[in-house]
Design a protein around this nucleic acid. Structure first.
Lengths: 251, 251
DNA sequence: CTAGAGGTTGACGCAGCGTCAATGTCAAGG
DNA sequence: CCTTGACATTGACGCTGCGTCAACCTCTAG
């Protein structure tokens, strides 16, 4: 008693193409092949096919299924291993979902898809007026010379670190952390160190002066072009507060 | 000011192969191509590349990214759509994880990888003794004739539904539902209707008699060959209890 | 005899590159 | 000038699991 290829396909709830594929990779051979080339399958094949499909619904790969069915691998062990992989995948999805969500809120928060900001934010010539007005011509000239002296690669890696910091600030703000929390102060410290690396900054190379550091925080809030880098006015306000706390404690 | 292919690759944290791929699919063309065929990229390309990589880390597909970057699609809308897809994927993983877990426990519960059971479980000739002893020769003969009369295809589809029911019973048992819960009683009703379709069953075609229905539940517990179909003795006990509640209420 | 249902073997397509392979180019050193 | 080594180029296969033609037999019923 045997069936044609479409017969078992229907019996098992799959397609003839799949059966041919399984035959091709040696996962399930027809019981018998007619002189006309037709494939025929018997009950043994049907049972095997069902087991294959069962395992496939669980997400196992065909090679793994082959090993299990041929008794080369313990089925429970295979499934447990597969389970770990599934759970890892789920965690990956979770973090990705979180990232997408924060990105959406950031975009809606007015940042556009960053990018321009991520470069222009560092092309501080854009902020020449503010810098000169607050800290003088010399500060701007120093800073400008420093920026121009960097190789493209250096600029980039620097930009990346900046973008990273901005993102973490925005995240922290979104989580509504207190400005004097450890996490926020950690970020403030990094902000301080980041500024310490920029010639033209009042206080360089020992790190920004208290006045400059606090003033910068105010500027982030006052100027939305800066604010955009920290999650908008709300984010910038959080950054300013955290920076002020840091200044009070250390500067 | 432009960079060679490996330069931007490093700047952006990707590989030259990826850049060539993006060029090939028109997602990111080199700013300029030297007479020697070398690709060169400028800052504009770098910005675009960064945006591409940012979106890719979120899991967007390259075609979707292209649409967003070319302004054909609103970025927020694209991300929201993507978010839905991610969440659907996560749900898929969740159910698959649950399936794998129950399958593992079922196997450890002594069922092997079912399959044989899934066919033999219906090949009730195996249970001839029990059937005859409890309900008489005639019941067995009727049932047997019915089974033999089915085409292979019919047998299969019937087997599938049986297997499905068994699996759901096992799941319910694993969730430790009360026997009189709605879910359990739903299953009991399906069990009843399933039996109603089998000639040879005392009470056919109006559905099994109360006596038969309750007795069958007892047999599931008493005979581990039956119990195996419902998640072992524990599962079978649950099935029996649910069936008894059902009988008390409706038969 | 013919139509139509069903079977066969290729082979491409998909997503996103990794990974050779075969070969050209450029800057530095002998 | 030649060599070497780093870096570039264009193919093209590989991976996962089949869906989906395409071109071409085979069997059955009318």
């Amino acid at each position: 008693m045997d069936w044609s290829i479409n017969d078992i396909a229907r019996l098992a709830g799959t397609t003839s193409r799949t059966l041919r594929h399984y035959g091709a990779i040696g996962l399930l051979d027809p019981t018998r092949i007619g002189s006309n080339g037709y494939r025929y399958y018997d009950e043994g094949a049907l049972v095997r096919l069902q087991r294959i499909l069962l395992l496939r619904e669980l997400g196992l790969g065909l090679p793994a299924i082959a090993e299990v069915l041929d008794g080369q691998r313990d089925d429970v062990r295979a499934l447990v291993g597969h389970l770990h992989w599934l759970e890892a995948e789920k965690r990956r999805l979770d973090t990705q979902i979180a990232s997408v969500k924060t990105t959406i809120t950031k975009i809606q928060g007015g940042e556009g898809l960053m990018a321009e900001e991520s470069l222009n934010g560092f092309d501080h010539t854009q902020y020449k007026e503010e810098v000169v007005a607050r800290w003088g011509e010399q500060a701007y000239a120093n800073s400008d010379a420093w920026w121009r002296s960097m190789s493209a690669e250096e600029k980039k890696s620097w930009s990346r670190s900046q973008l990273q910091l901005g993102t973490e600030w925005a995240d922290a703000a979104a989580r509504a952390l207190p400005a004097d929390s450890d996490d926020a102060q950690q970020l403030a410290r990094r902000q301080f160190e980041w500024l310490a690396g920029i010639p033209g900054t009042p206080g360089y190379p020992n790190g920004p002066t208290r006045e400059y550091f606090v003033g910068l925080g105010e500027m982030y809030v006052a100027d939305e072009r800066f604010a955009a880098n920290y999650g908008g006015v709300e984010g910038a306000t959080f950054v300013r507060d955290a920076m002020r706390v840091y200044a009070d404690r250390h500067l």
